Amino acid sequence: MARQHARTLWYDRPKYVFMEFCVEDSTDVHVLIEDHRIVFRLHCLLSCKNADGVELYNEIEFYAKVNSKDSQDKRSGRSITCFVRKWKEKVAWPRLTKEDIKLLKKVNTKRPPPGMDDLDDDSDSADATST
């Protein structure tokens, strides 16, 4: 069975971190919220919008400790939302994960910038005046 990550949105608030796993028409959902991590697992069947036989799986180590006993999840037709209670309230999280994961690699080019000789300012004004 193939395994993919579910698209995940998160919102930082003073008392909670809200996480939304964006999966429509989900069945067989398992969410485990622990003090240092969350595990989201979903087997996609015919009712799921993904291909048959695909397991959506996210395991996230939180940036900081949470209160798993005062956290919960709620399923709707379009997503699974998790309300994760922060251990330290009113402390902003700069990211969701424990590790600072870089999603975009730094671009390193040693070439000169491209030439702009083909851009001619006169061509725009000439087009505007000709009829």
Results as ranks from 00 to 15, higher is better:
Glu89Met: 07
Ser26Gln: 11
Ala2Arg: 14
Cys44Asn: 01
Leu119Phe: 08
Gly77Thr: 02
Val84Leu: 05
Lys106Cys: 10
Arg41Tyr: 11
Ser125Met: 11
Leu119Tyr: 08
Leu56Glu: 00
Leu45Asn: 14
Ala92Thr: 08
Arg3Asp: 06
Asn50Pro: 02
Pro14Phe: 11
Arg41Trp: 12
Leu56Phe: 03
Glu34Ser: 06
Lys69Glu: 14
Ser130Trp: 08
Pro113Cys: 13
Asp25Met: 10
Asn58Met: 01
Ala92Trp: 05
Ala128Glu: 09
Cys82Ala: 05
Thr131Val: 12
Ser68Ile: 01
Cys48Gly: 05
Arg7Ser: 05
Val107Ser: 15
Lys106Tyr: 04
Asp73Glu: 08
Asp28Ile: 09
Ala2Trp: 12
Met116Val: 12
Met1Ala: 09
Arg13Ser: 07
Glu20Cys: 03
Thr131Ile: 11
Phe18Gln: 06
Val17Ile: 13
Ile60Ala: 02
Thr8Asn: 04
Cys48Ile: 09
Leu46Ile: 14
Lys88Ala: 05
Glu55Phe: 03
Val17Ser: 00
Val66Asn: 02
His43Thr: 06
Asn58Asp: 03
Asp121Ala: 12
Pro113Val: 14
Gly53Trp: 10
Glu20Asp: 06
Val66Trp: 01
Ala126Gly: 08
Gln4Trp: 14
Lys110Tyr: 15
Ala2Leu: 10
Glu61Lys: 11
Asn58Lys: 03
Lys69Met: 07
Thr97Val: 08
Asp124Ser: 11
Lys98Val: 03
Asp12Lys: 00
Lys102Tyr: 05
Lys15Gln: 15
Ala92Cys: 09
Gly53Ile: 03
Val54Met: 01
Lys15Gly: 07
Leu119His: 01
Asp124Phe: 13
His5Cys: 10
